[in-house]
Nucleic acid binder design. Sequence first.
RNA 1: GUGAGCGUAGCUCAGUCGGUAGAGCUCCGGAUUGUGAUUCCGGCGGUCGUGGGUUCGAGCCCCAUCGUUCACCCCA
Length: 459
Amino acid sequence: MALTTARTMPGVMELLPLDQIAFQDMLDTIRRTYERFGFLPVETPVMEFTDVLLTKTGGETERQVYFVQSTGSLKQGDEPDLALRFDLTVPLARYVAEHERSLSFPFRRYQMQRVYRGESAQRGRFREFYQADIDVIGKDALSIRYDAELPAVIYSVFRDLKIGPFTIQLNNRKIMRGFFEGLGITDGEQQTLVLREVDKLDKRGAAHVRETLTGESFGLSAAVAQKILDLVQIRSHGYDDALAKLIALGQGTDTFNQGIAEMREVLTLIHAFGVPETHYMLNLSIARGLDYYTGTVYETTLNDHPQIGSICSGGRYENLATHYTKSHLPGVGISIGATRLFWQLREAKLLGSAQSTVQVLVTQMEEASLPIYLELAMQLRNAGINTEAVMEASKLGKQFKYADRAGIRFVLVLGSDEIAKGVVTVKDLRKEDQYEVLRGDLIKTLRVELEQASVMPLS
RNA sequence: GUGAGCGUAGCUCAGUCGGUAGAGCUCCGGAUUGUGAUUCCGGCGGUCGUGGGUUCGAGCCCCAUCGUUCACCCCA
């Protein structure tokens, strides 16, 4: 029989167990922080009705959507009425609209699930990937203060992930749009196009942006382009500097003034939340491509690895669920692309090698003593220690090799010598060290070892 | 969706002028019957992406096709 090549589609991340453990640790850290800030868990189905998911027929999103169809419906030639979600914000809008009367507002939810996009294969781009989102949704209104809370969450998450220094970059679209208005760019569409172009500043450089803005498609004068560049090249260093730079911008259109006022309040509260001023800055070129952001926008980058790009982004939107309800539901949210983040951290060798979830391996010295090994293993499990017992007789060397490759740090050896003496040999494969302990002291000893191993892992 | 590059062992790759297919790593076994990750020895593993053409002869040249990677677009 001809074999089928075992393979996965491109753009999916499938991991070996030790990497999977590291990835799950990452998700656990994010989840713990979200919960610590008082966000509630939500899960939604991977599939949604097509008409619900594709309310805005934006060419770009529709191109990337995977449609889902049952075999029967496919044979009948029907159009698919289901599709896979491509982000968590649209399902959130549907969720809030559907359960509006049962939810308490402001609604603070977190959601960590996989989303699907028909991307063409490219480094760091996935067709299936995890997003870890938080959003705060208000009924009728939502205080600007929540815009300052999210950076505090972002700070805590990335601090706890221990992936090196990072910077939360802040901007407000009202500042940008208001500024463009003042320059005579009053058309909303045109403003959006300029926003997108300006957003490329850090990647492509000022010269490229200037060239595009003064080029055919935009047709802006050199003087106007220069004024835009002068604004969007503003960066701050520290809290006082950020406030000073905002004040120095002076007055402008109503939208502009409102943006400045919002940004000032957000900065003041971020300071009050205790986010160190080394970890945030104004970057007036940040715009985000998505149309629905209306005020504050965020982007977070790793200081030592700028090529990784944004590892967390989001912003304020004026109305979440216009397509599903007449209620006015403003919100602010962020999204961490967990799959891409993990992948790029691994590529950049920023992840230490993970240890197995198996904490202790009980080796099999003599087949006749198997009942003793099994009993010992159960005692350890009952004490809360993840324990694997070797079930098949083999050479001790093989059993050690197995433990080493499986990432199991502690190995117990219990042969006739130990049984006679009433002790167990504990070997630490990472420290290359071994010693005997009394059977009665084993659990206490292992707890101390495991505690030390988790606090100070040998990399 | 637009443009460019690359397809040889599980992985990374070599393969001269067109002359019957190679290495390293990995994996399995042994050296070592109570000790892994080092070392040494042995073994498993390929329809050279697929189809056609040129040729006495094609991994190599030509055409097509599929796959894949990169850039743009967009995005986490």
